[in-house]
Each structure stands twice: as C-alpha cells, then as structure tokens.
C-alpha cells in the first residue's frame, strides 16, 4: 500500500502528451494563418487610417481656427473704421451746426442792426422833412403876420406855441 512514484511518473502517457503538443502546435499554426495574422494586419491598417484621419482633422481644425481668428480681426478692424467714420461725421455735423448757429446769430444781429439803422435814417429823414415843413409853416406864418401886423408879443407867443408843438410832435415819433 505504498505509493510507487516512479510508476506514476513513468505512467504519464508520453505519446498522448506529444500528441497533445502536436495537436496544439497544429491549432496554433492554423489559427495564426487563418485568423490572428490577417486580423492583426487589418486592425493595424485601420488604426493607421484612423490616425491619419485624426491628423487630417486636426490640421483642418487649426486651419479653421486660423480663419476664425483672421475673420475676427478683420471684423474688429472694420468696426473700428466704422466707429472712426461715425465719430468724424458727428464732429463735422457738430461743427456745421455750431457754424450755422453762429452765422444765424450774426445774421440776426445784422438784421437787427440794419433795421435799427434804417429806422434811425427814417426818423432823421422824417425829422428833416418836418423841419422843412415847419420852416414852410413859419414862412407862411410870417406872411400871415405881415398881413395882419401882429404885435411882437403875439409874434413871440405864436413862435413859442409853434416850438412846443414841434417838440411834442418830434417826441411822438417812434424810435
């Protein structure tokens, strides 16, 4: 009833073991030829292609980003130019308005001055005319005095009255 280890080791079936090894070698060869080699090659090819596509996508992305940056800078420049133009226009408009205002003020002043001047001229002319008229009246009065031989007091009184009337008349002229 003792274990015969030598018998056990010897009893491992070496032919079956070798048959198993040969079986496995055959299977390995078949699977390698049939599946693993082409599959790995296929996967490698696909991986390369995907990498190439990712590379291309990355390149086009950077290009697109550059384009976006360019567009933005162009847009900013355009906006700045528009703002400049607007500011210039505003300034010019303000200048124009100010000029127009000042001119209008000047014109108005001139018109006022002119009309004053004309009024004065008119008044002077009218005063002149009145004076002439009074002179004629005085001449006429003198003729009448001569006709009626009025006394000197009457004469003076008449003249004073006349002068007063003239003064009142002249004061009544609107300025």
């Amino acid at each position: 009833m003792s274990v015969d280890w030598g018998k056990i080791v010897k009893s491992i079936n070496w032919t079956l073991l070798m048959a198993g090894v040969i079986n496995f070698g055959l299977l390995l060869y078949i699977l390698k030829r049939l599946l693993f080699k082409p599959a790995l090659a296929f996967l490698d090819r696909r991986r390369e292609q995907i990498a190439a596509r990712i590379q291309a996508a990355r390149v086009s992305e950077t290009q697109a980003q550059q384009l976006v940056v360019e567009r933005e800078s162009e847009l900013r420049q355009a906006r700045e130019r528009i703002e400049g133009i607007l500011a210039d226009a505003r300034r010019e408009a303000e200048a124009l308005i100010a000029k127009a205002k000042s001119e209008a003020k000047k014109d108005a002043a001139k018109i006022v001055a002119d009309s004053k001047h004309r009024l004065e001229q008119e008044r002077d002319r009218m005063i002149h005319e009145l004076r002439e008229a009074y002179a004629e009246i005085a001449v006429l009065g003198a003729e009448r005095v001569l006709d009626r031989e009025i006394r000197i007091e009457d004469h003076r009184r008449l003249l004073d009255q006349l002068m007063e009337e003239i003064n009142e008349e002249s004061l009544r002229i609107p300025s």
Binding site: I12, N13, L16, L17, M18, G20, V21, F24, G25
Partner: peptide, 12 residues
C-alpha cells in the same frame, strides 16, 4: 481534465 494534455501545454 487529462493531465497529459495540461502537462503538454505547460511544457510548451
């Protein structure tokens, strides 16, 4: 479950 088969694999 045959020792010969597993032994063959292990020896490989």
């Amino acid at each position: 479950q045959d020792l010969n088969v597993t032994m063959g694999l292990a020896l490989m």
